[in-house]
Computed example of a mutant assay.
Amino acid sequence: MRALTSALFLALLMSAAQAAPAPVPQAVEIPLSSGVLHAQLFKPEGEGPFPTVIALHGCGGLGSHSDSVQPRYRDWAERLLKAGNAVLLPDSYGSRELGPQCRVKDIHVKARRERVTDIAASRAWLMKQSWVARDRVSLIGWANGASALLWAVRPQAAARDAGPDFRAAIAFYPDCRISAGLGWSTRVPTLVLIGANDDVSSPPACRQMVDGAHGRSALARIVVYPGAYHDFDRANTPLHAVSASPDAAVPEHGHLGTDSAARAESQKEVAEWLAR
Rank of each mutant, 00 (worst) to 15 (best):
G257W: 04
T186N: 06
A120C: 00
V137F: 01
K105N: 11
E269F: 13
L126W: 00
H255W: 12
R187A: 12
A11E: 04
Y73V: 08
A16R: 13
V132I: 13
A111H: 01
E272A: 15
E29M: 03
R207C: 08
W76I: 08
V109Y: 01
L182R: 07
W76H: 11
H108G: 09
V87P: 01
C102W: 09
S201Y: 11
V24L: 01
L32H: 05
W151R: 05
G60W: 02
A121Y: 00
P226Q: 15
F9R: 11
L81R: 11
A11T: 09
P100I: 06
K268T: 06
E265Y: 01
V24P: 01
H255S: 13
A11Y: 05
A228Q: 13
C102L: 05
R276N: 14
G227M: 15
Q70K: 15
L191R: 10
W125P: 03
L56D: 04
G141S: 00
A86K: 04
I194N: 15
G61T: 03
A205F: 14
V210Y: 02
D165N: 10
N144E: 10
Y73S: 04
H108N: 09
H108P: 02
K128V: 10
P90W: 03
V210G: 13
A124P: 05
D106G: 04
K128I: 06
A158H: 09
R134P: 00
A3W: 04
A158R: 10
A205I: 15
V87A: 07
W273S: 08
T117C: 03
A7H: 02
A261H: 05
S122L: 02
R167D: 09
G215Y: 13
L126Y: 01
I194T: 15
E272H: 15
A152V: 02
I194C: 11
Q18Y: 12
Q18K: 07
K268I: 06
D231R: 06
L13C: 15
R276V: 09
D165S: 10
A158P: 02
V188S: 10
P164M: 14
R187S: 14
R154Q: 11
A171T: 05
P164E: 12
P25Y: 04
A3F: 00
A17H: 12
S202M: 14
A27M: 02
A275W: 03
G163Q: 14
L56K: 00
R103L: 07
A162I: 13
C59A: 08
M14A: 15
F9S: 12
A213N: 10
